[in-house]
Computed example of a mutant assay.
Amino acid sequence: MSDTLRLTEALIRRPSVTPEDASCQALLAERLEALGFACETIASGPDDFRVTNLWAFRPSATPDAPVLVFAGHTDVVPAGPLDRWSSDPFTPTVRDGKLYGRGASDMKASLAAMVVACEEFLRAHPAPPLSIGFLLTSDEEGPARDGTVVVCEALRRRAQRVDYCIVGEPTSVQRTGDMIKNGRRGTMSGRLTVKGIQGHIAYPHLARNPIHLLAPALAELVATRWDGGNAHFPPTSWQVSNIHGGTGASNVIPATVVVDFNFRFSTESTPEELQARVHDILARHGLRPGADYDLEWTVGGLPYLTPRGALVDAVSAAIRDITGLEAELSTTGGTSDGRFIAQICPQVVEVGPPNATIHQIDECIALADVEPLKDIYRRTLERLSGVA
């Protein structure tokens, strides 16, 4: 069993369901401290949702050496129905050439690979011209209010330089290294409450149906082309996630209808532009803010893009060296904590194992993907420090 696989299994054994860290970070910090990293725990959040964050840093002795940060999360999503798992989700199990367990691919294998890659790299190059950091959280799978965003703000206040960041999210499709996420779309949610007048359904002239008031505007919102995207991002999308209206009785016109929706937006649009367009559409259909509707906005993250440059080139070359693959650059998919890191770091990419089973029953990673992932991280360290 390789060091990477052994450490991955040790992490899976810790049931670190958001926001619990279950001592995963302590285990990793112990390994990092042995390499000369200074490790700091930054806790955040209320007592009933306490989040554990780890900032570990090993400065280079070389003046003005660039700083590479490995980032990721120790928390995992709930296992789901235990009787549907082929083996206990927190007992790492190898069968048919795969390692099964919650977090196997999202993203405990990546964390293990990052740490072992640093161990191998620093054994061979104990004084590299590269500073290395680790930014880990137990609040990525949750609301993400007290995790990476809190650490990034602390680093910003300290004027901590971060030149490059590799996030270990599971980005690959078929084989480790076949896809690099070099950016992500922004995310913005809205909660629209349209106001009516409740009444008996047989006397509509004495009531005002908010669902009927909303329907024309909703149809236009669904049909709207928000932008055309660009060479790096698909077009902005608008999707309804929930609609709540009615009392449950079949003979009552409701007083309100509430619509939850979300934008996944490209760099062609800004939150302010999208918000203004939504309000304009509502106005065209006779809906007045305050009087006829309320609309609450939440911007979950801005889009970011890391074009080809030092980091993308180093990671792409490392993947080519280790696997022979030419990695595809992509900005598709959901969001990640990269959206927070991109606010303090100019070059952020995500590189990890295949994502086919993440969040699923019987989550797993192929054994054949584990060592190449570690080698990609190590080779990237070598290339960025100029020792490759």
Rank of each mutant, 00 (worst) to 15 (best):
A276W: 00
H279S: 07
T298S: 14
A283D: 01
P307M: 00
G300S: 13
R308K: 15
R320K: 14
T331V: 10
P271S: 09
I322G: 00
T323H: 10
H285N: 11
E272H: 13
E328A: 15
D321H: 12
E296D: 15
T323W: 02
P289M: 10
Y304D: 04
T332D: 02
P271D: 09
Q275L: 10
R277P: 13
P307N: 06
G309A: 00
Y293M: 04
E328N: 11
T298R: 15
G286S: 08
L305F: 11
A314L: 04
P307C: 02
Q275G: 12
L274R: 05
L295P: 09
T323Y: 07
G300I: 02
R277K: 15
R277M: 08
L287R: 13
A318L: 01
R320C: 05
G324H: 10
L305M: 09
E296K: 13
T323C: 08
E296Y: 03
A283N: 05
Y304F: 15
T331M: 07
L295D: 08
Y304R: 07
A283S: 14
V278K: 02
H279Y: 09
T298P: 07
A276I: 02
G334H: 08
G300M: 01
P307E: 12
L274M: 11
I319R: 04
S316Y: 06
G286W: 08
R277A: 13
L302M: 14
R308I: 07
Y304H: 01
R277Y: 06
A291L: 12
L329S: 11
H279A: 09
I281H: 07
A291P: 04
A318H: 10
E296S: 08
G290L: 05
A314Q: 04
G301D: 04
V299T: 13
T298V: 13
T298I: 10
R288S: 11
T298G: 08
G300K: 13
D294Q: 12
V315L: 14
G309R: 06
D280P: 05
P303S: 09
A317W: 03
E328P: 00
E328R: 15
Y293L: 04
Q275A: 14
D294N: 12
